[in-house]
Amino acid sequence: MSGLRPWQELSPGGTIRPTDAEKPKTGSWRTGIKPLADLSKCTNCLLCWLYCPDSAILLEDTTFVGFDDYFCKGCEVCAAVCPVGAIEMVPEETETPAGWVMRSDESGS
């Protein structure tokens, strides 16, 4: 287990701060499918944002703007919870047409 920190360097009880949490690139876990949103259907209820287990739903202020390529692991939860059927899982290689959002951020920040 190289690269892991010794007990002395861990905060009591394992409290994590955003700054000292490592950022595993869960986006690399996707197995061939990714979510895409049809914005014309999106009512911005943000259930996808509430449910996403990897905080991969991107917002600007309180408006849905897309998915975070770095974190989205393709779990399909967003598509399952979307009450208006605006999110669909598509093959990874699907091109992103206009009105469908997919954002990639290699830095993960």
Binding site: K41, C45, T63, F64, V84
Partner: peptide, 12 residues
């Protein structure tokens, strides 16, 4: 209330 609606489709 989830405050649906906004720039895309109107709240149901």
């Amino acid at each position: 209330c989830l405050q649906c609606g906004g720039v895309y489709a109107t709240a149901p």
